[in-house]
Design a protein around this nucleic acid. Structure first.
Length: 801
RNA sequence: GCGGGCGUGGCGGAAUUGGCAGACGCGCCAGCCUUAGGAGCUGGUGUCCUUGAUGUGCAGGUUCAAGUCCUGUCGCCCGCACCA
């Protein structure tokens, strides 16, 4: 019989749709499994072959779990707010809502054509007012708990999107989305106080099963460091604070540096003799974009302040103060003490400005370079610290500073608060109004959702105001507090808002009274397994953990952490090994693959093409291998024979494969799971036929990977019911071993022979058999045996001299 | 610079975690079938000269035994990037 994938796949997709085969049950007594993949942004380009890599992998897990008796929730939805849609809408004069609707339709068709077992009854859409009502509700809770605030600040401004970006959205000084220049602009923005959760976000990582690189990346991003905040007095009679992790080197501090944005400069204006020069430097660094600033990072610049000196608290020596943009206003106190002998940046700066150095840790050669990694050295030139190790000196100086009230222990983070407002149309309106009398006032929860007004023109403005600002009817409103005139906030939320909690909505997607019922959340949360891209580690993944921990703190969700387990897939590259992109012309369209090879082949191929976690190039010729495999599997229906048990001679092959596939799926080793199924198929084919028991086991194991063809074979064979209602096969450990095995015989570690022995042979017998082999006998005769080893089921090694 | 990861046939990749390197697939070669093959089937396929040597980026080391562990070194990828 010919393998007609097109007919078979269409047939089963319709049956699954009609029967709602994969709808999660609302029976909260069953053991549950919640598998999650990142819901896509429905772009105009349609599905990328990268999407199915992640979706197929968790689909395989979900389908296996169902066969193992779990109540499985495997949902799908649309992260549909966002700039590309808005830009497309502007260009083509179609409303973004309409563009979104069309794109979703196309995405949904594509996803369905791949046979994913999503529960389509729970589909969510972040642009649906009944959904973003709850996104806005969460924002109000954040506001009421002091975690949302408005602040005038220097923000990242994308010159092309005409919109503010979060720090996480600026990549190498350019806009993450469009690649255009990002500059600094002073604007008043809504901020979310993610820094208040820095410690919780770090601590939570200890309790979850995330792959290490995700944990490490989040830890580095949060960037906690322990140090000391030290007070430096100045010759003007005032003082300022610096932050250092190396208080032990205080005696080596020969100057201080403050950031160009530091408020002290304004304060000292009257006393600074070179005010003009200083002002010029400040203006220059303000003009620099992030990109320029990092580019120029190699050569240090700065200006010495004339007329004010800092006083080193440990020895009361006067040292100069510089301003330089290598000190960031956003980290620590925006001021540092510089120890050129033991810090490479300070060293470089001191060389350029000819500032003296004092070695305070012996062991390096400071005429050549800064001695930074000096844990082995002893303190010198440091008065009461002399002779101590660095660690000893750290605690001693800390004690001393505390006693004199000159320095306190301090923890600093690299993490910044989250810039939450965007000056664009296609996002959730922020449910706040501004009243002249009352200031910012939150909308009453009963007013939610605050829907986006339907307008004709949503072009961004050059002034940096949201397009919503132009709609008088919408903007002008009354103050919920005093009833007087007020104006609405016209900025919208960033795309990350809707995706920060979507997995909660899947639990109970049609609830009008809450983001989801308590019962549903208690049953389904946390997500048991979440797979997604590494690129979201410090964006979506971190943001959603923050929101979730907050929702836990206010009693909305039952667990502090949203995801028990997080894995990540590698990218699928173009055939030439480069990233797939339109401009490189190496894009593969999933529709073409489904049409030419079938969904099952596509699924098997994407799982077989390499290590799941690593990037792998697409290979059009390799797909054929997966197609051939499925064709051979289908042809098994022509050689089916009776038999309700595995035949003895191939029984262990089946048990071993069941074990391997079962374990490999849990470890995302889909490539080796498929390889073992291919091997088993080859074994069966060499026998010439397959019996009922063997067929059932084989196609059940293959079902999660290739669901359509296996369901069809089940029907052709006349097995009872449907495959998706059957059970995952089990194995017996005792039957996974062969009774006799081939072992290698080595003499001095070199292979001389291979012999068949029974699996439970004794060491003595194995050695005796081995030494009787001709090659072995010749190699050892006349020599002294020093050592004899037998590694059960592996090898024998005879060591001679 | 810091952090994470990786180097195995012509290619994608396996290797029970120290125990027969190259599973499985692609490609390639030969044969069969065919008017034909970008189809199918069978067999072969790390390298080198036949015997049997050799082989996991390179150089050392530990061990009866190293792709796997240790030291050094070279190269590549990802993330962060003046975080004091």
């Amino acid at each position: 019989m010919k393998y007609e994938y097109e007919r078979i796949e269409k047939k089963w997709q319709e049956i699954w749709d009609k029967n709602k085969t994969f709808a999660a049950k609302n029976d909260y007594t069953l053991p549950k499994f919640y598998g999650l993949v990142e819901f896509p942004y429905p772009s105009g380009q349609g599905l990328h072959v990268g999407h199915p890599r992640s979706y197929t992998a968790i689909d395989i897990v979900a389908r296996k779990k169902r066969l193992q008796g779990y109540n499985v929730l495997y949902p799908m939805g649309w992260d549909a707010f966002g700039l590309p849609t808005e830009n497309y809408a502007i260009k083509n004069h179609i409303h973004p809502a309409k563009v979104t609707e069309n794109n979703i339709k196309n995405f949904k068709r594509q996803l369905k054509s791949l046979g994913f077992s999503f529960d389509w009854d729970r589909e969510v859409n972040t642009t649906d007012p009944s959904y973003y009502k709850w996104t806005q509700w969460i924002f109000l809770q954040l506001y009421k708990n002091g975690l949302a605030y408005k602040k005038k600040m220097n923000v990242n401004w994308c010159t092309s999107c005409k919109c503010v970006l979060a720090n996480e959205e600026v990549v190498n000084g350019v806009c993450e989305r469009c690649g255009n220049e990002v500059i600094h602009k002073e604007k008043s923005q809504w901020m979310l106080k993610i820094t208040a959760y820095a410690d919780k976000l770090l601590k939570g990582l200890d309790d979850v099963d995330f792959i290490d690189r995700v944990k490490t990346q989040q830890r580095n991003w949060i960037g906690r460091s322990y140090g000391t905040q030290v007070t430096f007095k100045t010759t003007l009679g005032d003082s300022f604070e610096i932050f250092t992790t190396r208080a032990d080197t205080l005696f080596g501090a020969t100057y201080c540096v403050i950031s160009p944005e530091h408020p002290l400069i304004e304060k000292w204006k009257g006393s600074i003799k070179n005010a003009e020069e200083v002002q010029k430097y400040r203006e220059e660094s303000a003009k620099k974009s992030d990109f320029e600033r990092t580019e120029l990072a190699k050569e240090k610049t700065g200006v010495k302040l004339q007329g004010v000196m800092a006083i080193n608290p440990v020895n009361n020596k006067e040292i100069p103060i510089f301003i330089s943009d290598y000190v960031l206003i956003s980290y620590g106190t925006g001021a540092i003490m510089a120890v050129p002998a033991h810090d490479t940046r300070d060293y470089e700066f001191a060389k350029k400005f000819d500032i003296p150095m004092i070695e305070v840790v012996a062991g390096g050669d400071i005429t050549k370079e800064a001695y930074v990694d000096c844990n082995k050295g002893k303190m010198v030139n440091s008065d009461f610290l002399n002779g101590l190790s660095v660690d000893e000196a750290k605690s001693k100086i800390q004690e001393w500073l505390t006693e004199k009230g000159l320095g306190v222990k301090k923890v600093n983070y690299k993490l910044r608060d989250w810039v939450f407002s965007r000056q664009r149309y296609w996002g959730e309106p922020i449910p706040m109004v501004y009243c002249e009398k009352c200031g910012y006032v939150p909308l009453d929860e009963s007013e939610l959702p605050l829907t986006l007004p339907n307008i004709d023109s949503y072009e961004p403005t050059d002034t940096g105001e949201s397009p919503l600002a132009k709609i008088g009817d919408w903007v002008n409103t009354t103050c919920p507090k005093c009833g007087g005139h007020a104006v609405r906030e016209t900025d919208t939320m960033p795309q990350w808002a809707g995706s920060s909690w979507y997995f909660l909505r899947y639990c109970d997607p049609h609830n009008d009274d809450a983001l989801a019922s308590k019962e549903a959340l208690r049953y389904w949360c946390p997500v048991d397994w979440y797979n997604g891209g590494m690129e979201h580690t410090t964006l979506h993944l971190l943001y959603s953990r923050f929101w979730h921990q907050f929702l836990f703190d206010i009693g909305v969700v039952p667990n502090p952490e949203p995801y028990s387990k997080r894995t990540s897939h590698g990218m699928i590259l173009g055939e030439n090994g480069e990233k797939m992109s339109k401009s490189r012309g190496n894009v593969v369209n999933p529709d073409d693959i489904v049409r030419d090879y079938g969904a099952d082949t596509m699924r098997v191929y994407e799982m077989f093409l390499g290590d799941f976690e690593k990037a792998a190039p697409w290979s059009q010729s390799s797909i054929k291998g997966s197609k051939r495999f499925l064709e051979k599997v289908f042809a098994l229906t022509d050689c089916l024979i009776e038999g309700d048990e595995f035949r003895k001679d191939i029984e262990s092959d089946f048990h071993k494969t069941i074990k391997k596939v079962t374990e490999d799926i849990e470890n995302l080793k889909m490539n080796t799971a498929i390889a073992s199924l291919m091997s088993l198929l080859n074994t069966v084919l060499s026998k010439g036929n397959i019996n009922h028991a063997e067929m059932k086991a084989f196609i059940t194991l293959l079902n999660p990977f290739a669901p359509h063809i296996t369901e069809e074979i089940w029907e052709i064979c006349g097995f009872e019911g449907m495959l998706n209602e059957s059970r995952w096969p089990t194995y017996e450990e005792s039957k996974c071993v062969d009774s006799s095995v081939e072992i290698a015989v080595q003499v001095n570690g070199k292979i001389k022979a291979r012999i068949m022995v029974s699996a439970d042979i004794s060491a003595d017998d194995a050695l005796a058999l081995a030494k009787a082999e001709k090659n072995v006998f010749e190699a050892i005769s006349g020599k002294t045996i020093i050592k004899e080893l037998y590694v059960p089921k592996r090898l024998v090694n005879v060591v001679v001299k």
